[in-house]
Structures are given as structure tokens and as C-alpha cells.
Write a protein that binds this DNA or RNA. Structure first.
Length: 348
DNA sequence: AAAACGGGGTA
DNA sequence: TACCCAGTTTT
């Protein structure tokens, strides 16, 4: 067998030419800024979800300096609903750093990229390979799954020892050229063919070499994350409206869950909620209408939100002077970064 | 209700 | 290196 034509990378590239995705919005045009933005959005999110966000985001901020010049609020508004909002904050910070340190461009240098917040080894490699054709490996969840199966590697891929081995294999498979295509090919292959469930092994271009397939272990590789029960928390959310139907929103603190997003004021107990109400609003706390519980699952705990609703309330003076607390008309909700379940509750 | 997708930051 | 942090969609 021809050792080049038969190599892992060559087969993947041959497959990519007909089976890969060639019409993703960040491929046309494939600029460093657009590749970077796409890679950040794709970090924890699938292509199908990302695509409309990407198109809206580049329309709002067409260039890196545009993004740097925007307010964090405007950036979070574009990101609202995508989740993992630290990505948006890091993106914004990184854009400003690029303007200070790199003449308004993304650096074409691995160490300089990794020095930017939100860019780790895999994302830096993906950017360099796709934007410039440079020879760096990536190791996202798709690649981890493909390599774990192809090489028959057991153990949860995020275990340091397993991950180290996977990085070495990813590096060893790099082709001599076509790095942009190869990088996209790996992601497409994992996302569409070597999927977690029901992979298309019959159609797979590697199916003569895949160790997991040979050993009948495709379904059990990669090894699942060790399970652990999620802790549960509850919260009261205060949904206050004034006589004009405007909603009282509060900016969340800059760290923690939903950092810097706008949301409904939150309290742990009725006692806390009652005193917050008394401090900020006129009216009767006990007139609240209890709305249906909103269950929400984060990756590390489960949150059960209990909304309390009041209409035609009047705010105390403190609200007027508070930059992080304001009445928002329904029509303005689209311009703010809101957590997805809160946006849904408010009827958007 | 559970599973899937899934990388970065920091001590 | 070990451990911590972090949302939404799909099944």
C-alpha cells in the first residue's frame, strides 16, 4: 500500500473533498478574525447553533477593531443565548489587547495567541492552521473521539495522561500540506461520520485500520466521563413590572454564573427577597403571583428558579440612580444580553 | 430527566 | 498536573 495515500491524514483529506463541509460562513472569506470568532463560538457549541450567531455577530462587528471599539453590553447582547459567556468577555478583552499589542490584528504566532484570554492550545492551533495554513494540531472533542477509536485508546479523554497521549497522536498524524482543509476535515469527520452514537463505520474511510472497530469497541470509546450527581440549588427571581409594562432588570456581577448579563433580581429566600423588594420598590410583596418553576441545568449544578411576578409597581428613588438596575421596555430586551431561560420567561 | 457537546484558567 | 469553572440543545 502506498504509505502516503494510505495515511490517516491523506484518507481524511480525500474524504473531506466530497464529504466535508465547504460552505460554512467562516470559510468565505476565511480571514483570521472570522476564523478566530468561529473557533471561539464553536468551543462548546455545535455548528448548527453557531451559524446564525456567527452571521449576526460579524454583521454587528465586521472587523477586529470594530469589536474592540464596542461596549461589553453590545457584545453580550449579540452572544445572548449562546452560553458560556466568559467566551464573549474574553473575546472582547482579546480584541482590545490585539489593538494595543498587535496593531489591531490577530497575531500569527502560537505563543502570542495562547497569551490572549480564551485561546488555549487547541484553539490557537485551529486558528493558525485555518487562517494561515500553519502546521499545528488541534484536539477538540471530535478529534479526541476519532483518535480514541482509531487507536483504541481507553480512559476518559480529559484525563491528563490520556489527553497527553492524544496530543502526541494528533501531532504525529499532521500532513505536510493542506492544513486548513485537514483541520476542518477532522472536525467534520467527527461531527458527521464518527459521531458519538451510531457512527457510520460502514462508510468510514478508516474502517480497515480502526482499532475500536476491529475490536468491537466503537460504542464504548471514547470512555465516558466519570459520572457524578449534580448538586441542586433553588432561587427566587423577582419579575417586577411598572404601569407601562417595563421590566426591572439588574446587571449580574462580573464573575460567576451569567457574569455581566442582565437578568431578573435573584434571592435565595423569601426573607431576602422581601427585604430587597422593600428597599427598591413600593407596593406589597405578598401580592406576588407565583409563576411556574423554571428548571435549568448547568454543567455543574441544577438550578430551580421560582419567579414571582408583580404588575404596576413603582420603584423607589434608589433605582433611578443605579446604573446596574433599570426599567426596560419589552422592545429593548433584544438589545441586552439575557440568560436564555430568563429571555424565555419574559416572553421573547 | 439525562445525555451530548466541550475548552480554558488557575493554584 | 490537578482541580475548578462554565449553558444550551437534543434525545
Amino acid at each position: 500500500m502506498n504509505p502516503v495515500a494510505g495515511s490517516f491524514a491523506q484518507r481524511l483529506l480525500d474524504w473531506f473533498d466530497h464529504g466535508g463541509r465547504h460552505d460554512l460562513p467562516w470559510q468565505h472569506p476565511r480571514t483570521p478574525y472570522r476564523v478566530w470568532l468561529a473557533e471561539i463560538m464553536l468551543q462548546q457549541t455545535q455548528v448548527k447553533t453557531v451559524t446564525p450567531y456567527f452571521e449576526r455577530f460579524v454583521a454587528a462587528f465586521p472587523t477586529l477593531p470594530d469589536l474592540a471599539a464596542a461596549s461589553l453590553d453590545d457584545v453580550l447582547a449579540q452572544w445572548s443565548g449562546l452560553g458560556y459567556y466568559a467566551r464573549a468577555r474574553n473575546l472582547h478583552t482579546s480584541a482590545r489587547l490585539c489593538c494595543e499589542l498587535h496593531w489591531g490584528e490577530l497575531p500569527r504566532d502560537f505563543a502570542a495567541l495562547v497569551a490572549l484570554p480564551g485561546i488555549g492550545r487547541s484553539t490557537a492551533g485551529a486558528i493558525l492552521a485555518q487562517a494561515w495554513g500553519e502546521r499545528f494540531p488541534i484536539l477538540d472533542g471530535n478529534v479526541k473521539r476519532v483518535l480514541a477509536r482509531y487507536h483504541g485508546i481507553s480512559g476518559w479523554p480529559n484525563l491528563p495522561a490520556v489527553e497527553k497521549q492524544l496530543w502526541m497522536l494528533a501531532e504525529a498524524h499532521l500532513p505536510a500540506s493542506r492544513m486548513a482543509d485537514y483541520t476542518q476535515a477532522q472536525m467534520d469527520f467527527g461531527a458527521t461520520l464518527c459521531t458519538r452514537q451510531n457512527p457510520a463505520c460502514m462508510l468510514c474511510v478508516m474502517n480497515t485500520d480502526c482499532i475500536a472497530l476491529r475490536d468491537g469497541r466503537v460504542e464504548e470509546l471514547p470512555t465516558a466521563r466519570p459520572g457524578k450527581p449534580l448538586p441542586e440549588r433553588t432561587a427566587l427571581v423577582l419579575f417586577a413590572q411598572n404601569a407601562d409594562g417595563e421590566i426591572l432588570l439588574q446587571r449580574r456581577p462580573p464573575t460567576g454564573i451569567w457574569a455581566s448579563l442582565w437578568s431578573l433580581p435573584e434571592a435565595e429566600t423569601h426573607e431576602q427577597a422581601r427585604s430587597w423588594f422593600a428597599l427598591h420598590l413600593h407596593g406589597d410583596y405578598d401580592q406576588a403571583e407565583a409563576l411556574a418553576e423554571i428548571p435549568h441545568v448547568f454543567s455543574h449544578y441544577r438550578l430551580r428558579m421560582h419567579p414571582l411576578h408583580w404588575q404596576a409597581l413603582v420603584a423607589r428613588d434608589v433605582v433611578r440612580d443605579n446604573a446596574d438596575l433599570r426599567w426596560v421596555p419589552r422592545a429593548a430586551l433584544a438589545t441586552l444580553g439575557l440568560p436564555a431561560p430568563i429571555r424565555k420567561l419574559l416572553g421573547e
